[in-house]
Amino acid sequence: MRHAAVTYGAALAAMLAAGCGYTPPGKPNPADRPRTPAQITDFDFLFQQNCTGCHGDDGKFGPAPPLNDPIFLAIVPDAELLDVITNGRDGTPMPAFARRLEGPLEEDQIKIIAEGLKKHWKSSKLSEDKLPPYTVAAKDEATSTADTEAGKKVFARACASCHGDNGQGSSEGHKPGRINDPDLLSLMSNQTLRRIIITGRPDLGMPSFAEDDGRPGDYQPLTSEEIDALVALLASWRNQPRSGATVTLNVRK
């Protein structure tokens, strides 16, 4: 043992002295030169450090809507991805990532993530024109009663079997839970609602706008207008008086 160590050490010293081709494992590789956080351009690393917290490892099975989702990636405009990562979504738990908004990322890093999502996960099989457009018609505040009435009919057809007649949740089981809770809805933008209705949650078992799992036998894929109507209905629930326990905030001294 000692003999071997001595021999190896002597050989190593000889090689070091000779400066010959042998490279010990400790010799730093110029490719590993230190990079500041702002210099990191590797999509996998950036996604892992900034997105997986809510969107899940690999972009699915997270609590937030999956980014690794073929329908989503087929319809979402590039500018929207860039904008949402940069500025976040106001009022929702999607934070701004831009440095100038005190986020952790530089502009080019945001671009790498926004472009990398489609580069990595977009499927070529899905064509955008067969899908409803991504962008929501009604902004958060603008909801007409007409839409709401139309929305109720669509809801009964497309959603009620799992979410209950008025979105109060199913009578059996814990999931999917109540979706007419104004507190909950206040943390989701109309755009997110529309997106979820279109894409479903394939990772968690919620069908997309076109799939009929668990829906009535004569189910037809939702049209873009029907989706808007649903969003309008959900948005109207958002404005109901809050039913949840009022939170008392003891103001700190």
Binding site: Q48, Q49, C54, G56, G62, P63, G177, L187
Partner: peptide, 23 residues
């Protein structure tokens, strides 16, 4: 932003709990 919510928690959560975990 970097530590995912455990998948087992995501799978058993209802909608409120999902959004709650993003909060």
């Amino acid at each position: 932003t970097g530590d995912a919510i455990p998948v087992s928690m995501v799978e058993r959560s209802n909608v409120s709990e999902l959004v709650g975990s993003t909060v």
